Amino acid sequence: MFNKFFPDEYMASTYVISFEKLYKEGYRGVIFDIDNTLVPHGAPADERAKKLFARLEKIGFQSCLLSNNQEPRVKMFNQDIQTNYIYNAHKPSTKNYVKAMEKMGTDKENTLFVGDQLFTDVWGAKRAGIRNILVKPIHPKEEIQIVLKRYLERIVLFFYKKEQKKSS
């Protein structure tokens, strides 16, 4: 029942993902959520985020930010990153996942998505046919509608972890 919301992978942080390994596996584009995936909610790009995007570029990755936030928020974060971005994305709608791949010149087979929410980020990526990595939120302070979704996410993640144990 919950399988359609299960992430392809679940990791502690964006910053522990082996992007070098993913590049060797043939991935060429990474789509990122911003808030609580790369930085705490509403924060500008910090040194860690700046280094990550420099590293991705050096490896050979194309990247794109895909956010449900409005343009001023996304533009502020992207100021020091200077990558592709799409704001007001209406995730989990698949339209802007496709648009992000067009901007990067990638396709479903060589693109992956990294985000912190199951019902917007992961579900949208799954529906678009893109490999996805769910990461734990960076900071507990979130808007009320996200806090409420987190309770439902815990239920889905309980069953996800139970399924993972069975298959290992």
Rank of each mutant, 00 (worst) to 15 (best):
K99E: 13
D107F: 15
N110E: 02
K21Q: 10
H90W: 14
E143G: 14
H41T: 14
M104E: 02
L65W: 02
E163P: 02
G29H: 02
E109Y: 13
K136A: 14
V122L: 13
Y27P: 07
R48M: 09
S13A: 04
K4R: 15
I86Q: 06
F113R: 02
E47Y: 01
R150Y: 08
K136G: 11
G26P: 04
N68Y: 10
H41C: 00
V114C: 11
D121F: 00
Q117D: 08
D8H: 15
T111N: 09
R48A: 10
D80P: 00
I31C: 06
V16G: 04
D33Q: 15
R28H: 10
S168A: 11
S13H: 04
D8I: 03
G29V: 09
I59E: 09
H139K: 12
L152F: 06
L38V: 02
V98S: 02
I34W: 04
M104V: 06
D116Y: 12
A12C: 10
F61S: 05
D33Y: 11
E102H: 08
H139Y: 15
K166F: 08
L118Q: 09
S93K: 14
H139F: 08
F5E: 07
S63T: 13
E163K: 15
E9L: 14
S18D: 15
K108F: 09
Y23L: 04
A43T: 00
K162D: 00
G124V: 01
Y15R: 05
V147G: 11
L112V: 11
P92Q: 07
V16W: 03
Y85R: 01
A45I: 00
K95Q: 15
T94N: 10
E153M: 05
F77D: 00
F77G: 00
Q62L: 05
I34G: 00
N84G: 13
L148V: 05
Q62M: 06
I138M: 13
V98F: 07
K21A: 11
V156F: 03
A89Q: 07
L56E: 10
G105R: 09
P137I: 06
E153R: 02
V156I: 14
R127E: 12
Y23C: 03
G124S: 11
Y15C: 03
I86M: 09
K91H: 08
F119I: 02
Q79G: 00
P137L: 07
N3T: 14
D121V: 00
E20I: 05
L66F: 12
F5L: 06
R48E: 15
N96R: 06
K108M: 13
L38T: 00
K166N: 11
E25T: 04
V98Q: 10
S168V: 11
